[in-house]
C-alpha cells in the first residue's frame, strides 16, 4: 500500500528531515511510526498525503508513484485518503455533521446518501447524538473522534494519523487507538505517527522507529515484510529492522 524508496526530504530552510527512508507497508496493515520529536514522522505522513514532495527518492501509495501525480490530480488523490490530525482541523463554525459530511459533499453525493453515511460514521465513533453541536462544544477527545469520523466517512482504503492522541490522557488515547484498530479490522490500512511509546507498547502492532530522518528499527519484526524487502533491497536498514529492536549504533 505504501512504499518509500530511499526518500530524502530537505525543507526550504535547508533542514534535512528525511535522509534516505526506505519502508514498505502492506495493504491491511496497522503500523505505528515512532521516534523522538523531530525524527521525521510527520514528514513521512506529509509525503504520503502529498502535502510535501520528496527531494529525492520515490514514494508509492496504492501502487501509484506519487511523482506522477500532478497538482491537478492531488484533490482526487486525497479524496481516496483518510487523514487525522493532532489538532483535529475541524471547521469551528460548522456543525459536527457538516464537518463529517465535507468529503462527501466534495465527492458530490446526494444529500440523502450523505446523511446516511454521516450518521453511520458518527455512530462508529460513538457520537451520533452530537451531530448538531459545534466542534468547540465538544471535549478534545470527542473532537478527535469527529476528526476520525470525517477521515473514514468516504471509506478510504488508507487512513493516516499524525499524533492523534497527542492531547489526550492515556485512557482516552487508548480508546482512540482502539477505534483505529476497529477500522483496521475491517481492512483499512492504518498508519499512525506517535511518539507515545507507552501507549504503543500496549498494542501488538508493527512499529517503525525513526531517528534523525532514518529508519532505525522495527518492532516486532515483520517477517513477511522483511523478507520482501530483503529480496528487493539488500539495504542496511532492512537488515537492522529484521533484527528486531533498534540496535544502539544504527549506521547513519
Amino acid at each position: 500500500m505504501i512504499r518509500f524508496d530511499q526518500v530524502h526530504k530537505r525543507y526550504a530552510n535547508g533542514r534535512e528531515a528525511l535522509a534516505g527512508v526506505t519502508l514498505n507497508i502492506a495493504s491491511g496493515e496497522m503500523v505505528f511510526l515512532t521516534g523522538h520529536s523531530g525524527a521525521g514522522k510527520s514528514s513521512i505522513l506529509k509525503l504520503i498525503a502529498l502535502i510535501e514532495r520528496p527531494t529525492r527518492g520515490q514514494v508509492w501509495v496504492d501502487t501509484q508513484n506519487t511523482a506522477t501525480i500532478r497538482p491537478r490530480g492531488i484533490p482526487e488523490f486525497r479524496s481516496r485518503l483518510g487523514v487525522v490530525f493532532q489538532d483535529h482541523k475541524l471547521i469551528v463554525d460548522r456543525s459536527v455533521a457538516e464537518n463529517v459530511a465535507l468529503p462527501l459533499i466534495i465527492a458530490g453525493l446526494s444529500q440523502r446518501e450523505i446523511d446516511k453515511r454521516v450518521r453511520a460514521a458518527l455512530d462508529q465513533v460513538g457520537l451520533l447524538d452530537k451531530d448538531k453541536l459545534r466542534p468547540l462544544e465538544l471535549s478534545t477527545g470527542e473532537q478527535q473522534r469527529i476528526g476520525i469520523a470525517r477521515a473514514v466517512v468516504a471509506k478510504p482504503k488508507l487512513l493516516i494519523a499524525d499524533e492523534p492522541t497527542g492531547n489526550l490522557d492515556p485512557e482516552l488515547a487508548l480508546e482512540i487507538i482502539q477505534l483505529f484498530k476497529r477500522f483496521n479490522d475491517v481492512g483499512v490500512t492504518v498508519v499512525i505517527a506517535s511518539h507515545d511509546v507507552h501507549l504503543i507498547d500496549h498494542l501488538n502492532a508493527r512499529r517503525i522507529v525513526l531517528g534523525e530522518g532514518r529508519v532505525t528499527g522495527e518492532a516486532p519484526p515483520h517477517a513477511a515484510q522483511a523478507a520482501a524487502q530483503a529480496a528487493s533491497h539488500a539495504s542496511l536498514h532492512t537488515a537492522s529492522s529484521a533484527a528486531g529492536r533498534p540496535p544502539a549504533g544504527t549506521p547513519r
Binding site: P75, L90, L102, I106, R150
Partner: peptide
C-alpha cells in the same frame, strides 16, 4: 484554515 482543511480532504 477552513480552505486548508477542505483541500486536505480532497477539495479542488
Amino acid at each position: 484554515m477552513e480552505i486548508e482543511v477542505m483541500k486536505l480532504v480532497g477539495a479542488t
